Structures are given as structure tokens and as C-alpha cells.
Simulated assay, not measured.
Amino acid sequence: MSAATLLRSALAAALAAPLLAAPAGAAEKFSYLTSWFAQAEHGGFYEAQAEGLYGKAGIDADIRQGGPQVNAMQLLLAGQVDAVMGYDFQVLNAVEKGLPAVTVATTFQYDLQGLMTHADVKGLGDLKDKTVLIASSSHTTFWPWLKAKYGYTDAQTKAYTFNLQPFFADPNAAQQAYPSSEPFQAQEKGVPANFYLMAADGYPPYGSTIVVTRKTLEERPQVVRAFIKASMQGWRDYMKDPAPGNALIKAANPKMGDAQIAFGIAKLRELHALDGKNGVPIGAMTEARWKATDDYMVGAGLLKPEVDWHKAFTTEFVGDLDARLN
């Protein structure tokens, strides 16, 4: 082989190398804003990031923390983020106002909202002589459901200021709670307490959904689909080995300790939050459940009857999900 031929071969190899190493296309940027500071309830998204599942799906994912001063829906509609961790009532109310928000998948098969009670209370129906501490927003979400189901009255309620001392001090008090948060704090204080999940008694909404704008849905459907699929794979892996996701959770939220995270994961397993009682694929939603939520809201006067509830969600992206816990 001549020197010229060798030189041409070397140049061709050098030019081809970067082309072979480069991905087929640049990764699509996609930001997801959670509902609170990083915690176990967000673990699957951090796990997908830690394992590189988003990158493998062609996505440059940016998982952002929410918080008490963050208006997620406002940021979504302003185009500041591509997707947010949402709530069925929130999206149905947005549709009522003509806003283009759409739920494309869920994280949890149930809203994890519940009530924490002292040890003498045996269920959600056992609160007629109790003081119930709830936030102001709860009067337009779960409280009308509790009143209709159990005959409770507004006179029983007092403001919950996210301080557990009133509950600890009053043995006749119950309060709103999430299974991984307030019960953990009660345990740490050595206060015996029960937690009752409202969904177990029929409260219909999904929990911690993925919400996008209709524009994103129409212009970037493949990116939305890839993000959902990678996220649900992340949740599957997180529930098997949460260590990679936990490292990112603690980096994002240094106040989140190992004991709190472990408690949260245990509660997600105990409640079958991700796959429901029937072991559905992670992320799945049904029209029937959305109809049940619409029926409740309309019946409670929280939504106008003429609102087209079908606009609040689509099952287009969850029909082929295959990530399961078993």
C-alpha cells in the first residue's frame, strides 16, 4: 500500500470517528417541575436521571424542585417549564377557565392525602366528635367529600398551619396528612398515631400526575412519550434499589434524611401507590377514574357541570406502558 493510500485511509478514519461516536440526534431538553422539595415521593424521576434512562431515551431531562412559593401551573402556562407534577382538581379547574393544561400520565394510582388521628380512632368514619385540622385549600378538595360521605360539618374544622404541635397537644384532634410525612414526625416524637388514606374509602383522584400544555402535546408528542416511559422505568427501578435516586434526592434537598426516605418508600409499597391493588402498569390512567373525579367535583359544586372533563387528560401515552413492580 502506497504512502498516499495510507494517508487517505487515516484521514477517512479520523473523519468517520466522531460521526460514529455521535448520537443520531441531539438530546431534547425537557423540564419537569415537582410539587415539593425532593423526597421519596419523587424518587422515580431522580432514579431515571441517575441511571441515565432519560439520556438513553434521547432526553436532556431537568428535574426541578417545587415548594410552597412555587406556582407550578403558572410556570407551565408561561412556558417556563415543559411539564409539572399536577393534581386532577387543579387541571379540571384549569379546563373550566379555558386554560390548555392536559394530564398525560400519573405517578400514583391514588391521591396520597389522608388523615392522621390519635390511636383511639378506628377509621375515617370515626371523627364526628373530633376537631379536624385542615388547610384552607382542603375546603375545595377533600373536605366536601368527607362531609358528604360521613356527615361531618364545617364547625369541626380548624386551620392546619403545617405545625404538628396542636395535634400533639390535643388528643381529640385529627389532621390532614401524607403517609410519609406527618406520621413519620409523630413516630419521631413517640406519639402513637393512625393514618387513614382517603382513597381507600373511595376518594377518586390520581396523585402526582404529569401535566403538560396542549401546545407541547401537539408539537412534541414523541418527547412527551419518551419522558413518560423513562420516568416509569425509573420508578420501577427505584422501588427495587433506590440508592441511585436517593443520592440525587439528598443532593437536591440536604434536609432529607435517610430515615425519612426509607419511611416514605415503605409507605409507597404498603399502600401500592404506584401499581394499585390490581398491579397495573406504573403511570396508567383510565377514563372511568377521571369520570369519577368529575362526578365528585360537580356534585360538590367544585366544577361547573358543563365543563368538558375529557379535555383535562389523555390516555394516549399510557396505553403501552409496561413498567411493573412485579
Score class of each variant (00 low, 15 high):
residue 164 L to S: 10
residue 157 T to M: 06
residue 200 A to W: 01
residue 200 A to V: 09
residue 126 D to M: 07
residue 139 H to P: 00
residue 141 T to C: 01
residue 135 A to V: 14
residue 154 D to T: 08
residue 165 Q to I: 05
residue 149 K to R: 13
residue 149 K to W: 01
residue 201 D to G: 00
residue 159 A to Y: 08
residue 151 G to S: 02
residue 153 T to W: 05
residue 151 G to T: 09
residue 164 L to G: 06
residue 175 Q to Y: 04
residue 136 S to R: 14
residue 174 A to G: 04
residue 191 V to S: 05
residue 127 L to R: 06
residue 177 A to R: 06
residue 170 D to Q: 10
residue 172 N to W: 10
residue 128 K to Y: 09
residue 136 S to Y: 09
residue 177 A to H: 11
residue 189 K to M: 13
residue 174 A to Y: 04
residue 198 M to H: 08
residue 181 S to P: 00
residue 144 P to T: 12
residue 124 L to Y: 10
residue 191 V to R: 08
residue 185 Q to N: 12
residue 130 K to I: 13
residue 146 L to V: 12
residue 165 Q to G: 04
residue 201 D to F: 00
residue 197 L to Y: 02
residue 136 S to G: 09
residue 166 P to C: 11
residue 148 A to K: 10
residue 153 T to D: 11
residue 133 L to W: 12
residue 172 N to K: 15
residue 170 D to S: 09
residue 162 F to C: 00
residue 124 L to H: 08
residue 172 N to D: 15
residue 201 D to N: 09
residue 181 S to K: 09
residue 199 A to T: 09
residue 134 I to K: 02
residue 154 D to C: 04
residue 193 A to S: 15
residue 154 D to S: 08
residue 143 W to G: 01
residue 186 A to M: 14
residue 181 S to F: 13
residue 168 F to P: 05
residue 197 L to N: 08
residue 136 S to T: 15
residue 130 K to G: 07
residue 151 G to W: 10
residue 188 E to M: 11
residue 180 S to M: 12
residue 188 E to G: 00
residue 160 Y to D: 15
residue 148 A to I: 03
residue 144 P to F: 09
residue 136 S to L: 12
residue 170 D to C: 11
residue 155 A to D: 14
residue 160 Y to N: 14
residue 143 W to C: 01
residue 163 N to H: 08
residue 195 F to E: 03
residue 197 L to S: 12
residue 181 S to R: 05
residue 193 A to V: 14
residue 174 A to C: 13
residue 192 P to D: 12
residue 151 G to K: 01
residue 142 F to E: 04
residue 159 A to Q: 13
residue 202 G to D: 04
residue 148 A to S: 13
residue 134 I to N: 00
residue 185 Q to E: 15
